[in-house]
Design a binder for these strands. Structure first.
Lengths: 199, 199, 199, 199
DNA sequence: ATCTAACCGAGACGGTACGTCCGGTCTTCAT
DNA sequence: ATGAAGACCGGACGTACCGTCTCGGTTAGAT
């Protein structure tokens, strides 16, 4: 079953200059297919068909299929997680992790991440892009912890990177394995544990 | 007393039996290819050739290539990590994590896991098997924490699952992303942090 | 659709001595499958299943699959064609050819020959056997012509082999190509032409 | 006169066009492999490798391997046999049959036909194509006989189709069975016999 | 107003791996 | 020893997908 019927709004050829509409059509199609669930792999042909464009148009602007999928993912994920500043480490962490868990468990995003990881594991280019993506996210969390350190909320020897990786580690491990939920309750417990451990 | 045996006349399997040597040859070949590094994907043909068997023999006993790879991995990993019992949570954790990190960063296993994850991400059956595998490993770590609880080393409200997932989370996250090392030093720091948080 | 349900009559294992019943079961199964039409290829497995025997039993008594098929065919064809002796070449030929054409156009035999030729064309052993078979049939026809020669019905320089091959050639060519019928009428016309040419 | 062309707006085929060079490379490779002798079966992979093309390109344009082989054969055979016009039936037949026998026994063509027949016998589509091919060849021979009839060289009741099939029948029967040669001498004898029988 | 070069949808191309099918051999247990 | 069952090796099959190339057509900007 096709995930969604091809959107019939005809994009005009622009010629000469890059057609932004085509670019957006590709990203939108990628999001639809990634989110479609069912685990059907997103092939380049299916992506081109869903977007109503030619395969070459994909390869003209992205180095590989995975790069498209990653951009489709990050362009939506970017603004779903904030870096709150409540003045206390635990509540900052709780807010950040609640957002993270919620975004990661939304069916669409979950499907996207899963599909994307499949690509990353075999396509080194995508793995690099994925690493870049997680670097950015780790940076967000680091910012929160650094602010707490400046407020004197953390002990001297605290390994900030390790703390950050404990948080993301729980998230990725449970997301990938699916053996335990990623509820707001868990987020709060984790925030408390981490804040406690940092003191 | 009824004359028929209680077992409802199981058909007494005629025909040639499964060749255990072939099974072991396949698993051994899978281990060699997974560990070969270079990131070359393990194809079914290469696996059959390396093992000196026919492709059909693979598909007769495993549902997919990934299932073979996973079994090859788990059958070796099982006995590379111990569940130490030093009498104190922190040192138990440190010992366990040192082993875990070491096994996970040994070039062979690292290559195996990476290759395997690629299969898992696209083959749901392999993903299930991988989940089973991690469940077993989590059980080992849980055992350590439970023992500490019986010794009264953990606070009442400690979320054991969360503690376990923090440990494995750091491992998997760094293993997959490769943004930070998995040294014994990190293992000891993580053990201290987790033991502290559990109190 | 299976050609025919496996015949349920259980043959007993005899042990020690060759089981003629198994041999006949194999030939009968071969005939059923060859005649089944539909063009489904007769595989060794399907043959064993249809006959209710093991594959090894086939290879114990025949060198290859094709040899079984050929024997299945010849053992039926042998007694469907006679070598009449009416005292005149033309009527002998007509009788022989009528029989030949009739046997060759019976739906079962037609399917058998077609399937068999497929095997012969790729399996040299079968090709040899098929050659032997046609040699026998050519011999039958030669006998008829030789008798006519003894009666003085043929000219001195008549190439008997060529005459025989013209008869069988028409048969095989039309049988294989199917572009024209093999009716008794054609058989009689051909007999007249050949008898005329021999004079 | 209507402004629109009479052709009812055929879809104007977009996309890259069929590569005639690839087509010719495939046919040439098929001819080489068919003629290679040794009886090695022509596999699709070997065909693709020999032609330097992908397997899919074969399956895109031919329904099966056999169809390729047949086209490879017919495209060469077409112009190896002529329809002579010497003014007399017997000499016309002799010339035609000499050509036919010579072409059919040339090692290259013989190997081709043999290999091809194996395909034809199991692939109905190829069988159809083969039938078309023989129809064309029969047409050539018919032409010769028709010309003789116009010259009054044949008796009234002559069955032209049967005469033609006698000629081709000898050819195919001996070619397939290989029990007797297809020499020019045989061709001339057959021509004399047939011409005689037609009078 | 014309030309031209980059863009577009479509889809054929070379190539690699897949999972299935089959032939002929080998092994197990029962008769 | 023979037979039924069926696992085994080897190897061809036809399909799916990737990333590239080529086709006719479109259009922005240079001439």
């Amino acid at each position: 079953m096709p995930p969604t019927p091809p959107v019939p709004e005809r994009r005009p050829h622009t010629g000469r200059r890059r057609n932004e509409a085509a670019r957006q059509a590709i990203l939108a199609a990628a999001r639809r297919l990634l989110a479609a669930g069912g685990g059907e792999p997103v092939t380049v042909d299916s992506l081109a068909r869903e977007a109503g464009i030619g395969k070459q148009t994909i390869y003209r602007w992205w180095p590989s299929k995975g790069a498209v999928l990653l951009e489709a993912l990050t362009s939506t994920a970017r603004d779903q997680v904030s870096t709150p500043d409540t003045g206390a480490l635990e509540s900052d962490l709780a807010a950040f992790l609640c957002d993270l868990f919620q975004a990661g468990t939304a069916p669409d995003n979950a499907a996207m991440l899963g599909t994307l990881l499949a690509e990353a594991a075999r396509d080194p280019q995508v793995a690099d892009l994925l690493r870049d993506f997680t670097r950015t996210r780790r940076g967000d969390l680091r910012t929160i912890v650094e602010r707490a350190r400046e407020r004197g909320e953390t002990a001297a020897g605290t390994d900030v990177d390790l703390l950050v990786d404990q948080a993301f580690g729980v998230y990725w491990f449970r997301f990938l394995s699916g053996h335990a939920p990623l509820t707001p309750e868990v987020a709060r417990t984790l925030a408390r544990t981490l804040a406690l451990g940092a003191r």
